[in-house]
Amino acid sequence: MTKEQDAVEHEESYIKAYEDIQLLKKDVMRPVRMELEVMKPEIYLQHFNVTDTIVCFGSARVREEKESQEKVKRAKEALAKNPTDKNLQNRLYEAEGLAKLAKYYEEARRFAKLVVQHAGDRFAVVTGGGPGLMEAANRGAFENGGRSIGMNITLPHEQRPNPYITKNLAFLFHYFAIRKLHLVMRSRAFVVFPGGFGTFDELFEILTLVKTGKKEDIPIVLVGKEFWNTVVNIPGLASYGVISPEEAESCEVVETAEEAWDVLAKFYKIK
């Protein structure tokens, strides 16, 4: 081999296209990257025969009762040392708000347990794969021998996958749109616990898909009566005529894991 041949073989252009990471990262290759994000989870989900899922959404910030109360305590102690600090006041405000929602960690965990106990392998439990209420739902399925799937996404503030996901069923996405595709396409119910912008985005996405006929009619259950009745006024939309009275009944609002499961059991005639 001549020096010239050796030089050519080390040029970037000579790397096989599917092995060229720098090529795949270029803007012009976005469609290829998106297709890869569609195909990789599809291959794994088909391999593990995942056809029907129950999707659970909820805040990544909500923790178990004990941890939440500890956070409130620390925030109060910090503020007591500097009571005029606006940042510390805001941290206490957040901690106290999240403490009100801490009970739903156990509700999410128990709901997923009920799915496994009463439906067996019929449904896999799917979440966004992160901490908080997503972790709780994955945990409930995982601890009771059910299939537990996590669909995480890269964010500016790193969100690591929770430890309660079935081996080789944890996925990492770059594109929200492709992640939503996989969350929706096999879903047979959406159970939505209290959450913020991300949870609202996912809730209204599935409502829109169902109401436009892009997704078959499935149960959409909101867990946490006080929370949902405070922050969302769907009947108010109907009162202005922007949705129909029938559409205002698209979601069932419940308080407990058992009530949420009863909605699904009734819909699918599971005794």
Rank of each mutant, 00 (worst) to 15 (best):
E4H: 10
E4K: 08
A7L: 15
A7Y: 15
H10Q: 15
E11C: 15
K16Q: 15
Y18E: 14
Q22L: 11
L23T: 07
L23E: 10
V28L: 13
L36I: 15
M39V: 15
Q46Y: 07
Q46W: 08
C56W: 03
E67F: 04
E67G: 06
V72M: 07
R74G: 14
R74C: 13
A78T: 13
N82S: 13
L88C: 03
Q89W: 12
R91S: 08
R91H: 13
R91K: 10
R91V: 10
E94R: 12
K103Y: 04
Y104K: 00
R110S: 05
A112E: 02
L114K: 03
A119N: 07
G120I: 06
T127G: 03
T127D: 04
G128M: 12
G129Q: 02
G129K: 01
G132E: 02
G132V: 02
L133F: 02
L133G: 03
E143T: 07
R147W: 08
I149H: 01
I149V: 04
L155V: 15
L155F: 12
H157C: 06
Q159M: 09
Q159P: 08
P161T: 09
Y164P: 01
I165K: 00
I165Y: 03
I165T: 02
T166C: 09
T166I: 10
T166L: 05
K167E: 14
N168G: 03
N168D: 09
L172V: 08
F176D: 12
A177F: 15
R179L: 08
V184A: 09
V184N: 13
V184L: 10
F193T: 00
F193A: 00
F193W: 00
P194R: 00
F197G: 14
D201W: 07
T230N: 13
L237C: 05
I243S: 09
I243H: 11
S244Q: 06
S244E: 06
E247K: 02
C251N: 03
C251F: 02
V253Y: 01
V253I: 04
E255R: 00
A257F: 01
A257L: 01
W261L: 04
V263W: 00
A265I: 08
F267N: 05
Y268T: 08
I270M: 12
I270N: 11
K271G: 10
